[in-house]
Design a protein around this nucleic acid. Structure first.
Lengths: 103, 103
DNA sequence: CCGTTACGTAAGCATATGCTTACCGTAAAC
DNA sequence: GTTTACGGTAAGCATATGCTTACGTAACGG
């Protein structure tokens, strides 16, 4: 379940905000932290979690670390959600059908 | 952000297991709890959260409550993820392009 | 009716989580 | 070389979270 950590990571609103800030392109930690209501160390901790979840990657550039979204990390998430969605819809349809033929 | 609660709800592995058990069709609480490593009241609490997140719906049937997945609850999730995915890929591609023309 | 089944809820508790401040290493700047 | 910017990490703390047991309530069965 490689998507497990990803879901847990996305569960926190601050981490989602961080990801959304990275959506437009790579950014160093300081820039990410600016505009967020938490301190820079807090952002560092969140970035660590996001990295372990495979959602972001870092790249050292001199003294600063540039973070960017890892598109591959979202793959399993989408896969799980799509599969789940399809199967749930199918079950829902089957249930409605059963209900319909019964009455 | 109606998907906020949904993401938080999906962050817990036990709740994902509950959803996966419901994927095949509606089930009463007792059936859901059987096979899970936690007590039945714990499952009730999780179901409450899932319901508030719009991911499941309950339907009273005599003394038992039948829970089933609410397909509409997954919509915003997929929408967010799809939009995020697209934009992230685009940004990633643009960044790679920039890198390429620079060198 | 009265017991039983099915479930939600309250209370309590242990642990996880997110945050802050303080500190440390490392690379650039001068 | 010394100083300064950048950011990761440690320690500590308050709150959130997930679990359990105990209890309350509503419907079904005899």
């Amino acid at each position: 379940m490689t998507y497990g950590n990803a879901f847990a990571a996305l569960g926190d609103p601050t981490r989602r905000r961080i990801l959304e800030r990275l959506r437009t392109g790579p950014k160093p930690v300081g820039v990410i932290a600016a505009g967020l209501p938490v301190s820079r160390p807090a952002v560092s901790q969140h970035l660590k979690i996001l990295k372990e979840a495979g959602l972001v990657q870092e790249e050292a550039q001199g003294t600063r670390r540039i973070y960017h979204i890892d598109p591959r990390g979202l793959g399993p998430l989408r896969a799980w959600l799509d599969q789940f969605w399809d199967q749930a819809l199918e079950a829902f349809r089957a249930e409605a059908e059963k209900e319909h033929t019964k009455s």
